[in-house]
């Protein structure tokens, strides 16, 4: 641990020296050098607000491609009906139908909210995708957004509608597990200071 810290410090020094010799101070600022070309028009190819929306709720490749090049203000009208169809189809595959979820949202309401793919962020309240109390006020690096999403779609009014229940107590699950992917955030240990993300694997 100590050795690693020392290595990092040495590496930092080395990089700092490199930066200075490259003429940029590491406070980074100042007017952008005029000779750098930032001109031109940049056209949208991909977009994302909330995690997983396009992958799960767009039923075909064509829908996925189109969703990525549709601005948020125009997403609802086009994609809510398609997302609703997909939510129905996902349930059909397990011989069941959508049930009003833990937030009290029926399928049309849920897909209406999700079809406008933006992330709400609260600058003056706890930020979380869902922590049991606060809902959709941001997304932290350790939020289990997959389980939250699965619970909202498959969880029904109690959030645990399909969780591998053994209904007849014969030792074999009678219902599928659809409200968690079984992967927790235990392996993620982000820093509590900028830039927060962990060092890369080597």
């Amino acid at each position: 641990m100590k050795f690693n810290n020392i290595k990092h410090i040495v590496a930092s020094l080395f990089l700092t020296i490199g930066l200075v010799s490259c003429n940029n101070d590491d406070e980074g600022v100042g007017p952008v050098v005029p000779s750098i070309d930032f001109s031109g028009t940049f056209a949208q190819q991909d977009q994302m607000g909330r995690p997983g929306i396009n992958t799960v709720l767009s039923g075909t490749s064509e829908i996925k491609n189109n969703f990525n090049v549709t601005i948020p203000s125009e997403q609802g009208a086009t994609f809510q009906p398609l997302f609703l169809d997909q939510a129905v189809a996902l349930h059909d595959a397990f011989g069941t139908t959508y049930e009003t979820n833990i937030l009290g949202l029926d399928a049309p309401t849920l897909t209406t909210i999700l079809a406008s793919d933006v992330l709400q962020v609260a600058p003056n309240a706890p930020t979380t995708y869902f922590d049991g109390t606060n809902v959709l006020t941001g997304r932290t690096l350790t939020d289990d957004v997959i389980d939250v999403s699965l619970i909202l779609i498959f969880g029904g009014e109690n959030g645990d509608r399909f969780n591998g229940q053994d209904l007849d107590n014969d030792g074999t699950p009678d219902l599928p597990i659809l409200v968690t992917d079984g992967v927790s955030n235990a392996g993620e240990t982000p820093l509590n200071v900028f830039p927060y993300l962990e060092v890369p694997h080597s």
Binding site: Q44, Q45, D46, Q47, G49, P72, L119, P123
Partner: peptide, 14 residues
């Protein structure tokens, strides 16, 4: 809760 909306885009030079 008071919020703003945010999203990210990747845009390629034409």
């Amino acid at each position: 809760v008071e919020v703003f909306n945010t999203w990210v885009e990747a845009k390629r030079k034409q």
